Simulated scan of single mutants.
Amino acid sequence: MIPLPRASVLAGVMIIGVALGMMAALLAAVEVTATVRPDVVIGLVIGVPGVLGMLMILMSSRRWVTAVGAMILAIGPGWFGALTAIQVASGV
């Protein structure tokens, strides 16, 4: 059984995860100047936090570990959304 924290705590850490993902996207957009294929970027941005977060959630034995796993899992959509917004705004 997965130990779940309170709903307000879970929602809060997921909002923090989305914000961290957005900040990571801005940092990556500024720092990375190499041309990277879009499918590789989507795979890394969604896949890596998704796999790490799901593993943490599934293997957790404490509520706080589940919360951290949910935060890591929420980094992916924030990162992807911010990268998408940057692409659209730049007109490339």
Rank of each mutant, 00 (worst) to 15 (best):
Val32Ala: 15
Gly91Asp: 08
Ile2Leu: 01
Met71Ala: 12
Val32Asn: 13
Leu20Asp: 11
Gly21Met: 03
Glu31Asn: 12
Gly50Trp: 05
Met71Arg: 01
Met22Tyr: 04
Ile16Glu: 06
Val18Asp: 04
Arg37Cys: 06
Ala82Ile: 02
Ile46Cys: 11
Ile72Lys: 07
Ile16Ala: 15
Thr84Gln: 12
Thr84Val: 07
Ala7Met: 03
Gly12Cys: 12
Pro3Phe: 03
Gly43Ser: 10
Gly91Pro: 07
Ala74Phe: 11
Ala70Val: 00
Ile42Asn: 09
Ala19Met: 05
Met56Cys: 08
Asp39Leu: 13
Ala19Phe: 02
Ala19Glu: 03
Ile75Pro: 06
Ser60Asn: 10
Val30Ile: 08
Val30Gln: 10
Ala82Leu: 02
Pro49Gln: 12
Ile16Trp: 07
Val32His: 13
Ile75Lys: 05
Ala67Gly: 10
Ala24Lys: 06
Leu73Glu: 05
Met54Trp: 01
Ile57Glu: 08
Gly47Tyr: 06
Leu27Ser: 12
Ser90Phe: 12
Leu83Ala: 00
Ala11Ser: 10
Ala85Arg: 03
Val48Gln: 06
Pro77Cys: 06
Ala85Cys: 01
Ile57Arg: 07
Ala11Met: 07
Ala74His: 09
Phe80Leu: 09
Val13Gln: 08
Ala82Asn: 00
Met22Lys: 03
Leu55Phe: 09
Met1Cys: 03
Ala89Gln: 10
Ser8Val: 02
Pro5Leu: 00
Arg37Gly: 15
Val68Met: 09
Pro3Lys: 00
Met71Pro: 02
Ile86Lys: 09
Val48Gly: 06
Ala19Tyr: 02
Gly76Leu: 05
Trp64Gln: 03
Arg37Gln: 14
Ala29Glu: 12
Arg6His: 00
Ile42Pro: 01
Ala89His: 09
Leu58Gly: 10
Leu58Pro: 01
Thr84Arg: 11
Thr84Asn: 12
Ala34Phe: 15
Arg62Val: 06
Pro77Tyr: 02
Pro49Leu: 14
Gln87Tyr: 14
Ile2Ser: 00
Ser90Leu: 13
Thr35Met: 10
Val48His: 06
Gly81Gln: 00
Thr84Lys: 06
Gly69Pro: 02
Leu4Trp: 00
Leu58Asn: 10
